[in-house]
Design a protein around this nucleic acid. Structure first.
Length: 262
DNA sequence: ATGGTGGTCTTACCA
């Protein structure tokens, strides 16, 4: 079994012990993190190396920052989208055995009609072109991360309250569908689930959202068809969200069968 | 109720 996970940790400095504990407990082979909020010189590289992991990271002060932690060698690391200038460190891609992994921290977008929302749209258009190119080179592609998009009403605790917000609106649903149309499937929806099995990956820190399970599923693992046939399970581990001093996001993961890289 | 919480070289900003 090969386990791939993604987690927006909202500061790796604060969440380092939780990440190490989750890695050990989950036995994930690959963990992609977003919002590390660390410059590269402050990244705790040695701690991961001592624990037997390889790491690739790109960060900045205060905001953004992404990394890939892996039990297996990382190769062909890319930390920006070719042809798209962006000071924000939101993308890192690497090859692990036969798997190509793209880790994304999609802009939040603030509010519809703002400059930040326009940036989210431009950023997603650039990523769409990048993914299209990567798919042509790497048939076994996983695109993971904090997408800041809830794809369907079932992914939102109160869709009528969230409709026409940056996380859940027609334009973002279309952007998500365009990514899937490149040849990717939402691993979570690959598995049969009933309406009662709503599952979220993010709950606002405010207003006791987690306690009331007022969440959204905005963290995703998209798999190319070359990988989706090897997908055994897809789920969210909400346990870290219950811990003291939690991230506002929970880890999302998939398990692939061992034959995926054959 | 334009609030609420948490993170950041904090007293403003981002999510």
């Amino acid at each position: 079994m090969f386990k791939i996970a993604t987690w927006n940790v909202n500061s790796l400095r604060v969440r380092l012990e939780q990440v190490l504990e989750w890695l050990a407990h989950s036995k994930a082979d690959v963990l992609a993190l977003q919002e590390t909020k660390l410059t590269d010189e402050n990244f705790p590289k040695d701690i991961f190396l001592e624990q037997g992991y390889q790491v690739a990271f790109i960060g900045q002060k205060t905001y953004n920052g992404v990394c890939i932690i892996s039990k297996h060698p990382l190769a062909e690391v890319v930390t920006e989208v070719p042809g798209y200038q962006d000071e924000a460190r939101r993308v890192i891609a690497a090859t692990i055995a036969d798997l190509r992994l793209i880790n994304l921290y999609v802009p939040n977008g603030s509010a519809l009609g703002t400059d930040k929302y326009a940036y989210k749209l431009r950023w997603l258009a650039a990523i769409e072109a990048f993914i299209k190119n990567q798919l042509a080179v790497y048939p076994k592609l996983a695109v993971v991360g904090d997408f800041n998009i809830a794809p369907e009403a079932i992914d939102v605790h109160a869709p009528e309250e969230w409709e026409d917000t940056v996380l859940f609106c027609e334009e973002m649903r279309r952007a998500f569908d365009r990514l899937k149309a490149l040849g990717l499937v939402d691993s979570f929806r690959l598995m049969p689930r009933s309406d009662e099995q709503q599952q979220y990956s993010w709950w606002d820190y405010r207003q006791g959202s987690f306690r009331r399970n007022r969440g959204l599923r905005i963290d995703h693992i998209l798999l190319s068809h070359g990988l989706s046939k090897s997908c055994l399970s897809a789920d969210v581990d909400i346990n870290p969200r219950k811990s003291a001093q939690p991230s506002d996001h929970a880890p999302v993961f998939v398990c692939l069968d061992d034959a995926f890289d054959k």
